[in-house]
Simulated scan of single mutants.
Amino acid sequence: MGVRANLITVGIVDDHEVVRQGLSAILAQQRSMRVIGEGASAPEAVSLAIKYRPDVMLLDITMPGGGLEALKTIVSKTPEVRCVILTACDDASVAMAAITAGARGFILKGVSSGNLLAAIEVVMADQSYVSPEFAARLMDAALQVKLEGAPSLGLSRREEQVLREVEKGLTNREVADRLHLSEKTVKHYMTSVMQKFGVSNRVGAIRHLQGREHDARGTGAVH
């Protein structure tokens, strides 16, 4: 079936079916928009982008396979597809990483339908959209990274912070409380760390960290 030229086509990728259903219901009420595909993982996101080339993709950052990796692949293979991150991860450094990777927008789950539609309209005008209440935090994160320079472990500043707390034996809930994050955000960071280190669990991540620091001390490198 063909799609009218004036329609904004949208792809939705989130591993929670209820989220996809809710987004689809909102967009179905818009005469100018049409959902043309859905997925639940990073591979499905990439496949959807390549097959259907939607105008806009709504992507969760914590989907199986890694939302950030899916974003990078989509931007590389289908640069005409405008990606908007829609996530519960409320840390500004994640937003900055996504925008650096090519996301056109970053909004938190729970956003009003009006703001969601506004984000789609803005990115369709080839502009960037960040939730207004999130913009100041994003600027602070950008300034912090500029002041601190590049991370030493191949991790973002926040990923290393989380890993250091986990190394102390803290649970995800305890890390979340200490760093003023949500528990889901802490889990996201640890998943990202494990992917970067090529390990499958927290113990492996800690051992990898300690092994790298041991090697650095052995070569006289300064951490």
Rank of each mutant, 00 (worst) to 15 (best):
E133D: 07
I120H: 03
S113H: 15
A125L: 04
V130L: 05
E121Q: 15
P151V: 00
D126Q: 11
A135Q: 05
S113N: 15
A136Y: 13
I120Q: 03
D126T: 03
F134E: 04
R137T: 04
A125W: 08
S152K: 09
L117T: 11
Q127T: 02
A142I: 12
K146G: 12
M124K: 10
S131I: 00
L138N: 01
G154Q: 12
L138D: 02
A141D: 09
Y129C: 00
D126P: 00
L117K: 12
S131W: 01
Q127R: 13
G114C: 08
Q144S: 08
A135F: 05
A125V: 01
M124G: 07
R137S: 06
E148G: 07
A142C: 13
G110Q: 10
A119E: 06
L116Y: 04
A119P: 01
V111F: 08
A119R: 03
V111T: 13
S131K: 03
V130F: 02
A142V: 10
R137Q: 06
E121F: 02
L153P: 13
V122P: 15
P151H: 07
A135C: 04
G154V: 00
A118G: 07
E133H: 00
G114I: 09
P151Y: 02
L117I: 09
S128K: 11
F134S: 01
L117A: 04
A150I: 03
S152D: 10
F134L: 04
G154I: 02
L143C: 13
A141E: 09
Q144G: 08
L147I: 09
E121K: 11
A141H: 08
F134C: 03
M124I: 03
A125D: 14
E121R: 07
S131C: 04
E148S: 11
P132H: 01
G110Y: 00
A150F: 09
G154M: 03
A118S: 13
F134Q: 07
S112D: 14
L143N: 15
F134D: 02
L116V: 06
G154N: 09
L116H: 01
I120S: 10
S152P: 10
A136N: 11
M124W: 04
L147S: 13
Y129P: 02
V122K: 10
D126H: 08
G114Q: 13
S152Q: 13
V130Q: 01
A142Q: 10
Q127Y: 06
L117M: 10
A118H: 15
E133S: 05
V111Y: 08
N115H: 14
R137D: 06
A125Y: 10
A119G: 07
Q127G: 08
R137M: 03
V130T: 01
G114P: 03
L138P: 01
A125N: 13
A136I: 15
V123S: 14
V145P: 08
S128H: 12
